[in-house]
């Protein structure tokens, strides 16, 4: 029976924050907190979210937040967890909430170490594929083909996006998964799953968080662009348990072809519009290769 869906929803994100209109990272936090609930401590490094948390004396979140140095999410979260354990609190979930820069690049070492130590917290990377807070400079998460302020014009990024989930899978963490703002139920399910794996080690969630400001599309398209990324298999949604067991959630691995060519996804954003048909075709080829490898792992 179709319902009115009118129940009040407990939101842990306050309105009035300074996120850009259409900010995917903000949407990611809102959805994540719906699943994480109030017994959560957020550890937030330098990132867009460091600003969105709020200017003194305001907070945009209803949970405690520790802001920390850019490189330190993995370490600071470990310390917070140790403190809560020492105080006898095994209920509160510690969540490191970092951007792609603070995860793939400057924060990578601390993340790897925390994963290797089996630290008991959830590490969430909300990925807008560049250093957006500082004005759109490339990170190792920026995809091949993208223009940013440090890969401008003909110097567009020639390196592939680092596959961070594969890196975490190689650490054999109990749970690593991709998620997307366009698939809220899937995202919330994965957060709840991560919470339930308390004590098992580090859980890693990689959220695709589209950025209208940095990628060059109108603010109303954030969710649509995120959906196109999944539909084109550019950013498939999947889970890896213990670094070995793969499950593909979206798109369906039974479909022979993607429902959307990668070119359509890229044409929707001005950061890719300079690419020639041949370059797009080579990206399509690579996306299909990676998808094929992923499917093999999921068999």
């Amino acid at each position: 029976m179709k319902s009115y869906n009118a129940d009040p929803i407990e939101e842990y994100l306050n309105p009035g924050h300074v996120g850009c209109p259409g900010c995917g990272g903000t949407l990611a936090m809102k959805l994540a907190l719906r699943a994480l609930g109030p017994k959560t401590v957020m550890v937030v490094p330098a990132s867009c979210w460091a600003i969105i948390v709020g200017n003194y004396p305001q907070s945009s979140l209803k949970v405690p937040v520790l802001q920390t140095g850019f490189a330190t999410t993995g370490a600071a979260a470990s310390g917070v967890r140790a403190a809560l354990d020492a105080r006898g609190d095994r209920e509160t979930t510690v969540v490191g909430w970092a951007g792609d820069g603070g995860t793939f690049d400057i924060g990578f070492q601390a993340l790897s170490a925390a994963a290797e130590r089996g630290e008991d917290f959830i590490y969430v990377c909300y990925d807008n594929e560049a250093y957006m807070n500082t004005g759109v400079q490339r990170s190792s998460s920026t995809p091949y083909g993208a223009r940013t302020m440090t890969t401008p014009g003909g110097g567009w990024k020639r390196q592939q996006k680092k596959n961070i989930v594969e890196v975490l899978a190689a650490h054999r963490v109990p749970y690593a998964a991709t998620a997307s703002i366009a698939y809220p139920d899937d995202l919330e399910r994965k957060m709840r799953k991560a919470v339930s794996l308390r004590g098992a080690g580090l859980r890693f969630i990689h959220i695709f968080a589209s950025c209208p400001t940095g990628w060059g599309f109108a603010s109303d398209k954030s969710v649509k662009v995120a959906r196109m990324a999944v539909a084109s298999r550019f950013f498939p949604l999947y889970e890896v348990e213990d670094g070995l067991r793969y499950t593909i959630n979206q798109p369906s691995p039974d479909e022979a072809g993607a429902s959307l060519p990668v070119g359509d996804y890229m044409r929707a954003q001005s950061r890719f519009r300079h690419l020639s048909a041949e370059e797009v075709a080579s990206i399509q080829e690579r996306v299909e290769e990676e998808w094929g490898r992923l499917k093999q792992k999921a068999e």
Binding site: L66, T72, A75, A76, G79, V80, A83, R87, S112, A113
Partner: peptide
């Protein structure tokens, strides 16, 4: 920890906790 920078960051986390 895997570096001194992380050592200080983690005790900051712990003290904040």
């Amino acid at each position: 920890v895997e570096s001194e920078h992380s050592a200080m960051a983690s005790v900051i986390g712990a003290a904040s906790g």
